[in-house]
Design a protein around this nucleic acid. Structure first.
Lengths: 117, 117
DNA sequence: GCCATAGATTGACGTAGTTCAATGGCTCAA
DNA sequence: TTGAGCCATTGAACTACGTCAATCTATGGC
């Protein structure tokens, strides 16, 4: 009784998501960290500079207040996409490239075909 | 007078974002379309099924109302990540894999190192 | 033509995100 | 120890987003 196949005019599949809510949420959070124009620009600056960049550079590079820059850096860091190192009064941020690569891989894996439909 | 080099204790760089606001915005919008757990789950279902999937399947697969599913499909479609085909009263959605691949490439290109720092 | 059904749209509500001004903590120099 | 500078945090205002109930549109069967 439980296993009766669905009979419908529109489709023969009976699809279920293999991506659970619990698995989708952290991926969505990392993508949300990326999904802001100003955070993309910050990341682009950090990514293009091979070394570590002082916050004052970032504040000058974008038309945003210092607290706002600080907020965006915090979001990126919470997502694991960047990290920083404190030297005296200065903070130097850098991209965690392996995190970006992992994110790419997850996007790729998300839509890897596996079922006929 | 305009070209005097910056003298600062913290850094010797004078960084500018090569990613303009105008270029960052559409990329951020596509990422924002991806940055929702339920949209990721929809995309995962569409991606895993090689063919095209009827909306009724999607409504059954996730614990969301039909209007909400329809809204999310609209967002994904506006971002160019999926498309659909109408057959009679039914609508069949599918992933635009080339759009996902382009998005991956843009993330990769974003943080390609090019400047000493 | 009429009705049932699939899916899209609208409107409303609650939550989350972006931004800045003001302020706080910390470190170094004098 | 006092002051100045760098960066983080807080609080408030505004906007954007996710969700559902209700409604609308369009298609196909009778």
């Amino acid at each position: 009784m439980e296993l009766e196949p669905k009979v419908r005019g529109c489709c023969r599949l009976d699809v279920r998501s293999e991506l659970t809510e619990a698995a989708a949420r952290p991926l969505a959070e990392r993508l949300a960290a990326l999904a802001d124009p100003n955070r993309l620009r910050l990341l682009e600056i950090l990514g293009r500079c091979a070394g570590k960049v002082c916050v004052c550079e970032l504040v000058e590079a974008l038309p945003l207040s210092q607290p706002t820059i600080s907020h965006h850096l915090r979001v990126l860091r919470a997502a694991g996409l960047i990290d920083y190192e404190k030297r005296g009064v200065w903070a130097y941020y850098y991209v965690r490239r392996e995190a970006l690569q992992e994110l790419e891989a997850q996007i790729r894996g998300l839509v890897a075909p596996s079922v006929e439909g």
